[in-house]
């Protein structure tokens, strides 16, 4: 009998182990399919589901949260997808979340991605409708790619022509092969850099000056900033004004003096024009003037005669020696003067 009991116990353990494993497996599968926990149901519409079938996974921010319950055609442009999701996610998915189609890996199963959007919205409840994002159409993508490819081909051809032209241009090659060029460029850059540094320091100086001016330091600063100075300036301007007034007065005086002078001159004029006195006689008497003229003519004639006489005397042998001596002395004097000038020149040099 004891043997029978042991038999039963062993059998019980055996069967229980089998059942436990079965229940574990079913529970594990149930976790995948969300059948044992409470779920919520959400809906969305797509234009094209791209092979999505019931049972495909739904991911929220990359985590599996549920599965597609059904895919059915509503009309020719809308396909309704009903999603079964874990009850927990209703505390995370908001009503403005977007549903998009995706692929698990490159060639994997279709999946639905639920992506949160920016902005505040209430959390979803069972039966809510989510907005879907239109899937990237592979055909459209390929069409665009084709156009891009054609453009690239054209560009490459143009580039080829350009490069060939570059390769055949002797100037460019010369420019490229010139070894001094690079050093020149480097030097230029160094110069530019130096200049920039200088500009920089200059600017810094200017800046400090401006700061000084702002702070009221230095004469310009004082000029601009000192309030007492402006008062002084005011005073100066006032003084200048009084000075001007005085100058006006002086000019007035000068005017009166000039008037007096005028009167004196006109008096003199009158007195001169009058025939009385030697000066008036001399200026006004026409007879005297003619006599004076005669006198000058006579003087001219006599001086001419004197000139003839003198020439006669020069040619006279008695007086020849005297004139020769005079000439020599004259020459000597001229030479000495020249020498002196030369010496002075040398000294200057």
């Amino acid at each position: 009998m004891a043997k029978k009991i042991i038999e039963r116990v062993k059998l019980g353990i055996f069967v229980m182990a089998g059942l436990a494993l079965l229940i574990f497996a079913l529970f594990k599968l149930g976790q995948n399919r969300s059948l044992f926990s409470s779920t919520i149901e959400l809906k969305t519409h797509f234009h094209n589901v791209g092979g999505l079938v019931a049972g495909n996974n739904i991911r929220f921010a990359g985590i599996n949260v549920g599965a597609v319950k059904s895919v059915k055609i509503v009309n020719d442009t809308a396909i309704e997808v009903v999603m079964i999701m874990d009850d927990d996610v209703k505390n995370f998915i908001r009503k403005n979340a977007r549903v998009s189609l995706g692929t698990d890996g490159i060639i994997g199963n279709r999946i639905l991605n639920i992506n949160p959007e920016k902005g505040d919205a209430p959390f979803v409840q069972s039966g809510d409708f989510l907005i879907s994002v239109r899937d990237i159409d592979t055909d459209a993508m390929l069409r665009t790619l084709d156009r891009s490819n054609q453009n690239i081909a054209e560009i490459t051809e143009d580039l080829q022509v350009t490069l060939r032209r570059f390769a055949q241009s002797p100037q460019l090659i010369k420019l490229l092969e010139d070894e001094t060029m690079s050093t020149n460029i480097i030097q230029s850059f160094a110069n530019i850099r130096r200049s920039t540094d200088e500009i920089h320091s200059t600017l810094a100086d200017m800046r400090s000056i401006v700061e000084d001016v702002k702070a009221g330091e230095g004469s310009v600063g004082k000029l601009l900033r000192d309030t007492t100075l402006s008062a002084g300036l005011n005073e100066a301007v006032l003084r200048i004004q009084t000075l001007e007034d005085q100058a006006e007065k002086i000019t007035h005086d000068i005017d009166s003096v000039v008037l007096n002078l005028n009167a004196v001159v006109s008096d003199i004029d009158q007195s001169v024009k009058g025939t009385d006195g030697p000066l008036g006689l001399m200026l006004n008497d026409s007879v005297t003037a003619r006599q004076l003229e005669e006198f000058v003519v006579n003087l001219n004639a006599s001086s001419e005669l004197l000139k003839v006489n003198m020439e006669a005397m020069q040619s006279n042998f008695l007086l020849k020696g005297y004139f020769k001596d005079q000439e020599k002395a004259e020459k000597k004097a001229r030479k000495a003067a020249e020498k002196k000038a030369k010496k002075a020149e040398r000294k200057d040099n």
């Binding site: 497996a25 079913l26 594990k28 599968l29 976790q31 995948n32 399919r33 049972g55």
Partner: peptide, 14 residues
């Protein structure tokens, strides 16, 4: 290992 095993298993399999 068991997560991966059950990842692709469904009731249709079991």
């Amino acid at each position: 290992f068991f997560t991966q095993v059950f990842e692709f298993l469904t009731y249709i399999d079991l």
